[in-house]
Design a binder for these strands. Structure first.
Lengths: 170, 170
DNA sequence: CATGAACCGGACAACTGTATCCAAAAAATG
DNA sequence: CATTTTTTGGATACAGTTGTCCGGTTCATG
């Protein structure tokens, strides 16, 4: 139901929130979030245009979340790249309906409203702070019985990884 | 957020519920719901395959809602043409996440769940029975002070009501 | 059994979303 | 000022969605 673009934008936003206030290159984000690099660049450009992130060219540059994660809700991210368009007028152009939606479209629009509200009340900080074991996007190291195996795959871009705490699959 | 196909399918379903148990031709539905006839045929074919409506060829044929409107919820209609796909596994293929979604995808999937639940608990009958003034898809007659104007535009395919009132070109 | 009404299915066109590539512009650094 | 790093934007390709067209099939009716 949500577009691929929305998915990518959310991943990037969460990752940027993690790394804030450090600037991160799009390639870095692309690797960490497993999003096609070139396409991610376009998506991020939308976030820039929306004023959610700022970009800095050149060495040591990259993109940064402008506001603190507590002040950014995920509806803003979604709307920046692929706005949820509420139903404001009758899709059938029945002018006697006017602003008043018929029962069908009222229900559909209510669904939109629910999603909007849920997303508006969810901040990036909230997602990062989730008490669960794992950092949102990152692989979480599992404790291998015999091998020691605690080696970050890519030491060059530090991601805040985390220890699994015996959370068996539900 | 919902596809055009979903919108069309819902219109058709509501209209078929109105007209049940009479069979209605796709052309009839197309006109009443303002959906491109040829494309609507495809959409309806999906509803047939899903077992929601049955079709009958030849004169006096058409399509009919199989179950009574009280027993059909709109989630079934949506899923028949463009299924809501819940997030069951980590979209990043992080296998250590397994079945357990990260905080981000948990929220997104929760949004899907909310929509699913809302739609599952809404029947076609409920939409038809809405106490408001208007029959779901149809133009509603407004009381014009001076003009009497009660002329059905298209007498050949009876829809439950009509009367265009002073509709200036948009 | 001929006719017309209606659905069915495949082929095709147009448009949008997704994705890739590359050159240009901007910024830091020496 | 040259070089390197990075974003930016354009051109293009590919795929999925939306929409159209048409011949074929099924069915009721006389």
């Amino acid at each position: 139901m949500f577009s691929q673009t929305v998915e990518y934008a959310l991943r990037a936003a969460v990752y940027l929130a993690q790394r804030r206030p450090d600037p991160v290159t799009t390639e870095n984000i692309a690797q960490a979030t497993k999003v096609p690099q070139a396409y991610l660049a376009k998506v991020i450009s939308s976030l820039v245009k929306a004023g959610l992130v700022k970009s800095q060219r050149g060495v040591g540059g990259g993109v940064t979340l402008v506001r603190p994660p507590e002040d950014v809700n995920i509806l803003e991210v979604v709307n920046a790249v692929d706005p949820i368009k509420r139903i404001t007028t009758c899709p059938l152009d029945l002018m006697t309906h006017g602003m008043k939606l018929c029962p069908l479209h009222r229900r559909v629009d209510n669904a939109y409203a629910m999603v909007e509200n849920a997303f508006r009340s969810t901040t990036l900080a909230e997602i990062l702070a989730e008490p669960g074991q794992s950092v949102p996007l990152c692989e979480v190291p599992t404790v291998e019985p015999s091998s020691s195996a605690v080696v970050p795959a890519k030491p060059n871009h530090r991601m805040p990884l985390e220890v699994e705490v015996a959370a068996p699959a539900d």
